[in-house]
């Protein structure tokens, strides 16, 4: 399912949500989560999961094409931990 399919399904399942409004809501949700993470905030959606930011240490790596040694600086990466309800539903 893509974002546009999610928007489409949202407006179909909801009694009076126009597609344009469904699009606005879906964008608000994912932009909202992204903005919170950019500010270092953690986002918890009960029953779905939580998003947080994890630090990755700087390391030396190799360019797989040239074999050249490159140093990768420490950086942050988004992390998602599946919530209990969703974890159990996915595995059932």
């Amino acid at each position: 399912m893509t974002k546009s399919e999610l928007i489409e399904r949202l407006s179909v399942e909801h009694d009076y949500l126009k597609k344009r409004d469904a699009e606005g809501v879906v964008n608000l949700i994912f932009n909202g989560i992204g903005d919170a993470l950019s500010q270092g905030d953690r986002v918890e959606i009960r029953g779905f999961g939580s998003f947080s930011v994890r630090e990755r240490e700087a390391r030396e790596a190799r360019n797989p094409k040239s074999g050249e040694l490159v140093s990768i600086p420490n950086r942050k990466t988004p992390f998602f931990k599946t919530g209990k309800e969703l974890r159990e539903r996915v595995d059932s």
Partner: peptide, 21 residues
């Protein structure tokens, strides 16, 4: 409803692709 639809989709084994996210 947005999260319920996502949960249903994932429960069915289907992946969800959110461009830019």
């Amino acid at each position: 409803l947005v999260f319920d639809l996502m949960k249903e989709t994932l429960e069915a084994g289907e992946k969800i692709k959110i461009a830019g996210f």
